[in-house]
């Protein structure tokens, strides 16, 4: 079942771009443009996560946070403010994470995933067409036959799956799979992608995007 995420953001454009990105990852989204509307929605419906802008009309993010504390829904704050006071205030109120605008989509998706995992809302078995990945056992299965992957290949596959339909640059892959302090060549990424395509039969699905990098498309 798709996870339901409530986007509380007064700027229509920002709300929409967040929604578009989340939809790519098969999250179900609902939009609220002010605090009171969000509060009403939360009273009626249960969400797996709330993305909450701080500066919203009628009821600001902090106030809304106070009111919905008892619901136990995880919250990620979105804000333009970069002050330590606001961060501390947000986290003290029980927010699970904090994102300062402007933010990158993949960063937001990663934080959402982390928070969902912490709450045990994350699917531990991910399916992509004929490929099944068990995140707990670190196992990749195609038609009930396990596939042997090197650790880096496995992690690269997970990154592709988690950013489905979004192109990532080779640098982003290096950063996410090999770690920020790895100064390898981007060719390493190409080698692993090539090997993944072959082992999993995903030649068409893992697309090379000109001047950017790779994208997993369904």
């Amino acid at each position: 079942m798709n996870k339901k995420i409530l986007i509380v953001e007064d700027d229509v454009h920002i709300s929409k771009i967040i929604k578009m990105n989340l939809n790519l990852m098969n999250y179900a989204t609902t939009e609220a443009y002010d605090g009171l509307a969000a509060f009403e929605m939360l009273k009626r419906e249960k969400f797996d996560l709330i993305l909450l802008d701080v500066m919203i009309p009628h009821l600001d993010g902090f106030e809304l946070m106070e009111r919905i504390k008892s619901y136990g829904t995880p919250v990620i704050f979105l804000t333009a403010k970069n002050s330590v006071y606001d961060k501390v205030n947000g986290l003290k109120l029980g927010a699970d994470d904090y994102m300062v605008k402007p933010f990158e989509a993949i960063e937001l998706l990663a934080r959402i995933e982390t928070v969902l995992r912490r709450y045990g809302h994350e699917d531990r078995v991910v399916e992509f067409q004929h490929v099944q990945v068990d995140l707990d056992k670190r196992e990749v299965v195609i038609q009930e036959a396990p596939v042997e992957l090197t650790p880096k290949e496995y992690e690269l596959l997970v990154v592709l799956l988690k950013n489905k339909n979004i192109a990532l640059t080779r640098e982003q892959f290096l950063d996410k799979v090999w770690g920020g302090d790895y100064y390898g060549e981007t060719r390493t990424v190409d080698m692993h992608i090539k090997s993944l395509r072959k082992k999993l039969g995903l030649q068409d699905q893992i697309k090379t995007i000109y001047k950017i990098g790779y994208r997993l498309e369904d």
Partner: peptide, 23 residues
């Protein structure tokens, strides 16, 4: 001021990135 500056920036960066990284 930061709010007014960052709100359009968030949209611009968000849309630009969406357009260049998705189908």
């Amino acid at each position: 001021f930061t709010h007014e500056l960052k709100t359009p920036l968030t949209s611009i960066i968000g849309y630009a990135n969406f357009l260049r990284t998705t189908k």
